[in-house]
């Protein structure tokens, strides 16, 4: 089974699944609008949406919060997504057939995790685009696109952790992602819902190795009505590239052992 085969199969599965689950399909399109409602409720708590914008340090809180929610789901969620794909297959009983369809289960997890993550990101973008357009016209839509592009790159360093989570969950015979305890840490240190500057110095230092932080930085640049400087964007991309190598390099050391251990215990 080649990479193209996995991509095609996963896209086909996602589309067929959404077609068969129409209520979920509709709800997934609707969620950005509940986020907008939350902004107005929070804005009223601060006196006005403008006050909330000033507290968050952005000019467009609507776009920022909506994008930040998407970042939280997608950037840190890739770990959950990869693990949950594997666990979903185990729950359905399809896991052994997927395992025997490929020379490398890890390859399947990498490609299917990225494909489903990209699909979800594209879906979220489509759901958010009308809201962004209503709020700030075409420029908001373009900024949102930029946020999603960086978000996808921001998810790449975590794919190794996602695979580790998937195989470790299968190995431990748990019904949930055994590395899910990392998600709050990623969101907390990534500064998803507040400026990273309000954290103590040591946590700010720690956040430099959290990929989500750079995605949030990109989102803040876009939501701040600033024209992102080439230097700013490059710094974000370089940092993410470094983390992609670091995280996935570390994960690759353990994944093949984990996969072998899974075969020792057996796949169900």
């Amino acid at each position: 089974m080649g990479v193209a085969g996995i991509v095609k199969a996963e896209l086909y599965l996602q589309i067929s699944w959404l077609r068969s689950n129409r209520v979920l399909f509709a709800l997934q399109l609707f969620w950005p609008y509940t986020a907008i409602l939350v902004i107005y409720v929070m804005g009223s708590a601060y006196g006005s949406v403008e006050n909330l914008a000033s507290a968050l340090g952005v000019e467009d809180p609507l776009l920022y919060i909506v994008a930040a929610s998407a970042i939280m789901f997608a950037a840190s969620g890739i770990i959950d997504q990869t693990a949950s794909v594997a666990l979903w297959h185990r729950w359905l009983g399809t896991l052994p057939y997927i395992y025997t369809s490929t020379p490398s289960f890890t390859r399947y997890l990498v490609v299917s995790g990225l494909t489903s993550s990209l699909f979800q990101s594209a879906f979220n973008f489509l759901a958010l685009a009308p809201a962004a357009f209503i709020i700030g016209g075409l420029s908001s839509g373009l900024r949102l696109f930029l946020v999603f592009a960086v978000m996808i790159i921001g998810a790449l360093p975590l794919i190794g952790l996602g695979i580790t989570a998937a195989i470790a969950s299968i190995l431990a015979r748990e019904e949930g992602n055994v590395l899910s305890f990392l998600n709050p840490l990623l969101v907390f240190l990534g500064g998803v819902f507040y400026p990273i500057e309000i954290l103590p110095k040591i946590l700010q230092e720690a956040s430099t190795i959290i990929p989500v932080r750079y995605v949030v930085d990109a989102a803040r640049l876009a939501a701040g009505f600033q024209t992102p400087t080439g230097q700013g964007i490059l710094l974000i991309l370089y940092s993410l590239a470094l983390l992609i190598v670091l995280y996935n390099g570390l994960a690759s050391l353990g994944v093949s052992r984990l996969e072998r251990a899974t075969r020792k215990r057996g796949l169900y």
Partner: peptide, 30 residues
């Protein structure tokens, strides 16, 4: 070189039709 059948009751996507299920696995098999 193998074709496997492990369980009669499980092993497919419940909401997908027979044809859709086979199409998914066919793609996966390359």
């Amino acid at each position: 070189v193998i074709g496997v059948m492990l369980s009669v009751e499980r092993g497919f996507f419940w909401k997908l039709t027979a044809r859709e299920n086979l199409k998914y696995f066919g793609m996966l098999y390359g």
